[in-house]
Design a protein around this nucleic acid. Structure first.
Lengths: 197, 197
RNA sequence: AGACACCACAUCCG
DNA sequence: CGGATGTGGTGTCT
């Protein structure tokens, strides 16, 4: 029974992704998300905290020049910090497998490797770990913590907390943009001539 | 939309990869490619023949259980055979350095060595040449031939013939898969129980 | 140590 | 349909 059979026959299976909404209705849950428009470009992150299904806190922010994954990591980091402040068992949800697997699995290997990618992958130029400072910050935030569980949830799947975090990350972008407009209005100096009137 | 997008998306660097398309617009060119999805797994090969920039022939095929490099070699072999049939100077292009260097350089050493890998390999197990039958077939196809030049071209670089050969190799995979589906419908025996009904 | 190719996953965006 | 941001792997040779 070759592996690829499972791989190839998947389309026929019509696998449906079932969302266990009930799983979010009890206890403490933090949802983190990031966005970037375009990618790369101005980006934002958002965090929403839920207790027993009701939002009890939220936060957001942004960066003028960033990437989707940097914002995703920043959101997760802020989510972890928010979760730590609760001093109770919390689940932190994020729809980026890059962020979730990185925090749960890959991080340890990178750390052991001096924060480098150890894989048998391409040239040594690609050996450098991207966004290393953010990974190190996440690693530090997670040091000695055992009441936080980071889990992956599917994006755009109707999960309320995820949609809310997405909304907040868009708010983060809007905030960044607005600060540009303000700066532009004040100084008239941000945009290059070709983009003005 | 927003002006800052344009402002942001184009940093100063902007290195462009230049392809000498003109090189393919004159004379006889054969493009060979292979694919494997996943690797290892079901694979396909594709060959496209061009005269003065227009496609005059194509071929494709596949294998149920193979590797990317086996398909790459099979594609090259079929390409060489197609080139021989033209009985004129032909350039055969392939994006696999494994296939191109193997056919142009390494092949002679291996042959001299009784189709074994030479070098300082103490372990006789490491002297086993993989895909030896394919290399021997290529060697036989190239015997006494002097009107065929095998060259490497970069993959996924917008080279029309290479993209076409890639498409054909995917067709090769599809054909293989389809034959499985047919077999499944006929015998009801291909899929494991968990994927049926 | 190097090179090329093949693949998988998720997200972001147009 | 397209691209970018990022990770993980295998196939093969020198």
């Amino acid at each position: 029974m070759a592996k690829w059979r499972k791989f190839k026959t998947k389309p026929a299976g019509a696998v449906r992704y079932e969302i266990d909404h009930a799983a979010f209705e009890t206890g403490l849950h933090v949802f983190a998300d990031g966005a970037c428009e375009p990618n790369p470009g101005p980006g934002g992150w958002g965090v929403a905290v839920y207790r027993d299904g009701v939002e009890i806190a939220s936060d957001h922010g942004g960066d003028a020049d960033t990437t989707n994954n940097r914002m995703e990591l920043t959101g997760l980091l802020k989510g972890i910090e928010a979760a730590k402040a609760l001093r109770a068992p919390v689940t932190v949800w994020c729809d980026s497998q890059y962020a979730v697997k990185g925090a749960n699995e890959w991080r340890h290997g990178w750390k052991k490797n001096g924060w480098q990618r150890g894989g048998a992958n391409a040239d040594p130029k690609n050996r450098i770990l991207l966004n290393a400072e953010l990974w190190q910050a996440i690693d530090a935030a997670l040091a000695g913590v055992d009441q936080i569980t980071i889990l992956w949830c599917k994006g755009h799947a109707g999960i309320v907390g995820n949609e809310r975090a997405d909304e907040l990350s868009n708010l983060g972008i809007a905030t960044v943009i607005k600060s540009y407009v303000t700066q532009e209005e004040e100084t008239g100096d941000y945009l290059t001539a070709q983009y003005r009137g």
